[in-house]
Design a binder for these strands. Sequence first.
DNA 1: GTAATTATGTACCGATAAGTATAGATCTGT
DNA 2: ACAGATCTATACTTATCGGTACATAATTAC
Lengths: 197, 197
Amino acid sequence: MKAGRHRSFDKDIALEQAMEVFWRNGYPGTSLSDLTTAMGINKPSLYSAFGNKENLYKSALEKYVEKHGVIHGKYLFSADKLLTDRVQDYLISIAEMVTDPKLPSGCFVCISTSEIGGTCIPKDAVQAILKINAATKSFLIEAFSNEAMKSSVNSGRSPSVMACFVISLQFGLAVMARNGASFSELKEVIMFSTAQL
Amino acid sequence: MKAGRHRSFDKDIALEQAMEVFWRNGYPGTSLSDLTTAMGINKPSLYSAFGNKENLYKSALEKYVEKHGVIHGKYLFSADKLLTDRVQDYLISIAEMVTDPKLPSGCFVCISTSEIGGTCIPKDAVQAILKINAATKSFLIEAFSNEAMKSSVNSGRSPSVMACFVISLQFGLAVMARNGASFSELKEVIMFSTAQL
DNA sequence: GTAATTATGTACCGATAAGTATAGATCTGT
DNA sequence: ACAGATCTATACTTATCGGTACATAATTAC
């Protein structure tokens, strides 16, 4: 055990709380006192545990991907289902999350992406966001290039275009949720959009 | 002519400049000095002409809809075209705008919608944003309920679901643009998404 | 020309932003 | 028990936030 006084809060729980605040308010919309209040700690503790606001934000993004991002991917790899059903399951899982009343509405990464372009988000954080979106695209391309997929109905379609299509749809659903759309509305959009696959 | 010193700047041009700053940085990401710098005026002039930050924001939103929003709608009403082509033209017009290098990337209304939900945007401004999105939806529903449309290929589809589908796609394209997507990538997504219509 | 009116520029206001110095509390290793 | 290490709480710093008071410049009405 390391010497010195023990941390009186759970770093992981505090990070989740910070994540929710950033998710709800965005980067420039979140102040340090918003964070310390939500996390139940005070500023020196925050700075010693997470560095600074920008670093905490980047950690919150990682946390989000780990906790609310990667979980949907499995639906794209259900062995014995058609492509249409897989993509639908994937998107429906996302639609459930972005409308989950226990969480901030929408998608943290989508909101962060929307905030790119201004001067308000630090450069490193912008890179982190771009990297997450690039990873999502790679993941989707891989899924659509998969052996099992190739043999499915979608032969002849570019995996890259399909990946962009799905990412666009994800983003669209997330913003719709932010606008107050219900899960069932989003589901209708998903069924409509994926009918052709 | 009214008495007193004349305004030394063009109110409409100043509003457009404010619109671009809000568009680029979002509401909480934009400071009054960002605004006064871009508009080329100082604070008392801003306050006397536009009220305050929130009011200027609402005026900027109106300006955006008027200048960059309504122009796309005409493509949905081209008399002698198929539904698919109309929707494609509409979305391509939007894709051109959200990737226009002379303008901030993405869509101002989409970014504003993403900022809903936090505490950072004043209540009245949130209402203004929701109203714009509701108007867009009504407009699309009307387009899809149109006599000419009914006789087209889409018979049997709910105009409301189609409207949600198109709005989701718009939002998705806008966020993609913010992420650095090119016009041609967005066009591919559009052609892919609308192939079934 | 003079009074009334309106816009501009500077300098300011209190509040809050992100971040830190410092002192005291709490722990481990010896 | 004591030394060294680490965390916490309060209070502080500097900069900027949104917004305004006030004096001055420019304009019209008479």
